[in-house]
Design a protein around this nucleic acid. Sequence first.
DNA 1: GATATTGGATTTGTCCGACATACCGGCAAT
DNA 2: ATTGCCGGTATGTCGGACAAATCCAATATC
Lengths: 259, 259
Amino acid sequence: MSDKSNIISTVFDASDRPDKRKNESIADWLGRRIVSGAIEPDETVPKEMDFLAETGISRGAYREALRRLVGKGMLVTRTRSGTRVAPREKWSLLDPDVVRWSFESGAPPDWYIRAIYELRAMIEPPAAAFAAERRSEDDLQAFRDALHSMRYCDMTEESWHNADASFHRAILISSHNPVLLSLEAGICAAVAFTTAFRYRDMPNPHTRNPVEEHAAVFERIEARDPVGARRLMTELVDTALLDSRGTTVFDLGLPTLKV
Amino acid sequence: MSDKSNIISTVFDASDRPDKRKNESIADWLGRRIVSGAIEPDETVPKEMDFLAETGISRGAYREALRRLVGKGMLVTRTRSGTRVAPREKWSLLDPDVVRWSFESGAPPDWYIRAIYELRAMIEPPAAAFAAERRSEDDLQAFRDALHSMRYCDMTEESWHNADASFHRAILISSHNPVLLSLEAGICAAVAFTTAFRYRDMPNPHTRNPVEEHAAVFERIEARDPVGARRLMTELVDTALLDSRGTTVFDLGLPTLKV
DNA sequence: GATATTGGATTTGTCCGACATACCGGCAAT
DNA sequence: ATTGCCGGTATGTCGGACAAATCCAATATC
């Protein structure tokens, strides 16, 4: 029937991840295919019986995988007409899984990275201001640990990137805004992937370790100075954006949703 | 076995929504129970066999409902120990379903409404600035339609609230940032619910129709003036926050995540 | 000839029963 | 005290069956 039938079995291999649950593996596989554009909005995903016939995986496992994606707004199901990919604006683009899929399936499109940066520029400065007003002693310790690792690790190391992500996570946690905290996983994942991308594609040796700029933000938060924290955080995000210009991933054009 | 067994059948009635799919109804019911705190983080949801025995609903439908919530980060499943509610910071609090559940299950807690307002104060002014730079002619028409309805409807009417939500939706759409757009559904749902809440609990007759403030923001966006648009949008959100003070839902204390 | 009805085909939705797998906790052997 | 075995329990997967919804086309009606 469907010409895509053979594609299914050739691309999806359950033995790829023997440790994970099957429905989770299928959801990962399908999620990556959708965010990468292999299946475009309004196209149909494999019919349940087709998938069963091609992969030998039970219908129930496949359906549970579909339900995961329906919950993220990426799929809509209608009897008879099949299960189709929802329009992009319905997706939860900051969902941690969606972020992960976006970066795991090759280089994400420019508009995506650009949009993430713009969101960080909106979120992180005011979050730093809230953090300055509301941070607890425990919150401060998280900053100190992250700064310590950033200071004594090399920027090429994995641990440095983890410390960088931890610093930005500490900002959001210290803001003590639950909704902001719920975006933490997605934003931090995006931060980690984008910085990793930046230094992998452009291991620019003369890029300075920005630990002092980070420390300056922390110092204002520790001093309970929301205005200063916001200002320094703005500079920090702007610097990160500037650093990204001139690399391969940025064209600085207006972001366009549809091609 | 479980003492909660009888609770299941007494509270969940599949005939509540004869039009919806069963697994969707179950997900709604469970989602509301979780966000309302009836089942707290780290507690277990009904075991599959218990639910089947109490409600007569098949295991498959229940499992698909659970998958929806797993996809939203609200549940984690482990063999043998059961399916438990994840800690709050893992939930996608801006997911449209989660927003809906939060307001449908009675009055949401103060910290939730406060957190939403803080997020709007972060997001909407810069979004208005981007909108001023990037709005298309079609975008402008959406603003005009919303403003027309706001001007000629009474604030007590349902249509006025819809127009208000449409105006804020137009801001996010006109920003042409895909990630921001993906938050649109959740934010607009929250805006609509909070304003409806405000005027239902406090139908203050001397509250002015803020249509002119909205129109002023639109005028700056139409004139491609990002600085002006951002400034007026900031005033608009601050006014909404001020209006909410003194009502029953706000105490203006620091938001606390855990009680 | 245009419209309404009906029936079949197709795909998702639900149900059932069985077994597999992972994991916890207790028991026993080293 | 540590290690390893073993049974119980809850989730994970499987296969098959039928129900419900809906699209499409042939047919009946005006």
